[in-house]
Design a protein around this nucleic acid. Structure first.
Lengths: 241, 241
DNA sequence: CTAAGATAGTTGCACAATAGCACTAAGTAA
DNA sequence: TTACTTAGTGCTATTGTGCAACTATCTTAG
């Protein structure tokens, strides 16, 4: 009943996919690529999460593989990157037993220029509202995207995650707006400011943001790359499930 | 610079490992197996997390594979099972590029009889205190176990996770004790009871637990298998990192 | 020069939830 | 009946929040 420990045992396919989020035009967007029409790959012409096979020559480890795929599509080299999970089964890929390691990334919209690369027909940002994005995605990517959205929205309730959707320097109003965009509900200004400032996650920059109205204080992250956990969610009476 | 989409692309090894926790003698324990001495497998004689190659004939999906491995060692068929993450790199297995999908399971200590199976020399519960368990584990399992412990302790702060370390029926004192064992610190009784009861996660059973002292009310889970998220951690001023 | 409009940021109060600690309740055993 | 042990409750100070009004600082129109 036991399996042999030989490495020659038949191996599943191994891929890495990345769910890349950004905020564009006051809305959350996710990056999708359109698969080639004429290839004899599965799901031709359909939209999918960016990703592909692990390259055992090029990729030191899974995270490096995810970073490479992100860089190839967006040029971004230092995103917020976190593992979302892995999905493997005999049915999710018509070519056979396949397992994908999924990461999710947050990047600021600013400097991004999309590149479709050789394997894709098109690359595009898709707005995300409520639950659905595109009805049908290749493989089980629609389900994976749902899971990523759930994780994002859930984690935003009690962490500093959304800073990674903004450029290095930002105002507290900017930050609050991103929280509201992701959570799709307004947040109390006073409570928000108290929480963010008392969490010690940001420090003031000497500059102020110019504009048509009163200039706002600019802040930046104290520990770039790290996550701050708030002691509670924004709306205590709301279920966190 | 792009990878070919052919499924014949060289594939990494794919394994599944399970971090199995239980409470024994008022202490948290983890299940480890000792690898065969005489095999020409890597890390002979060393202790490791239970796991092994994905069997593309036997295992419908990754979770089924994890459940199978848990069942083979402990006989337990309905544990709390959650994905911990995946680790893959060119260095973690001397046989080549290997990726492991790791799950973590919580089971009640009661009915468990360990079975070492054909691939192991020994199976045993190891107490977990502070950080380290056994100095050296096979592969990168020591690091994986650390991550599992961190996740467990972190999640216990604000969820109902520890119920899955208890039998179906338990008292609130039992439950509090498990929290204290995992977190390695005392918890305020009154606050604890209020939180658990107001979260609506348990329902009273008509029986009472007999004993030398005042009998305690027995409770059971309202929605077995589910997790309840509390609105905040047990100690608000403590960092959750 | 002044007033209007907009965004930034603060203050005060009522309310809800919890930590901390002391207290009561219900059993056993001498 | 008293001592002991574990189960369970009550009270209060503190803390964070929702809410809403208030002040501050800029630009632009007239």
């Amino acid at each position: 009943m036991k399996q042999p420990m030989e490495p020659s045992f038949p191996r599943p396919l191994a891929t890495v996919d990345v769910v890349i989020f950004t905020v564009l035009d006051e809305r959350l967007h996710v990056l999708l690529v359109q698969r080639l029409d004429d290839a004899d790959d599965p799901f031709p012409g359909m939209w999918a999460l960016p990703g592909g096979f692990v390259d055992i020559d090029k990729d030191r480890d899974l995270e490096a593989c995810a970073k490479r795929k992100l860089r190839e599509k967006t040029g971004v080299t230092s995103p917020y990157l976190e593992q979302l999970g892995s999905w493997g089964s005999t049915k999710r890929d018509p070519r056979g037993w396949a397992a994908t390691h999924v990461y999710f990334a947050l990047i600021p919209a600013d400097p991004v220029v999309l590149e479709k690369g050789a394997n894709a027909q098109d690359v595009r940002w898709f707005p995300v509202t409520g639950k659905n994005v595109v009805k049908k995605l290749a493989f089980d990517h629609a389900m994976i995207l749902d899971t990523a959205l759930e994780r994002l929205r859930n984690k935003v309730e009690y962490t500093s995650l959304p800073v990674y959707l903004l450029p290095d320097e930002f105002t507290l109003s900017d930050l609050q707006r991103v929280y509201e965009i992701v959570l799709e509900r307004p947040i109390e200004k006073s409570a928000f400011r108290t929480r963010v400032l008392s969490s010690d996650m940001v420090e003031a920059v000497s500059k102020m943001r110019e504009g048509a109205n009163r200039p706002a204080q600019l802040y930046r992250l104290k520990n770039p790359g790290s996550l701050v956990y708030f002691p509670r969610t924004f709306k205590p009476r709301r279920e966190m499930d």
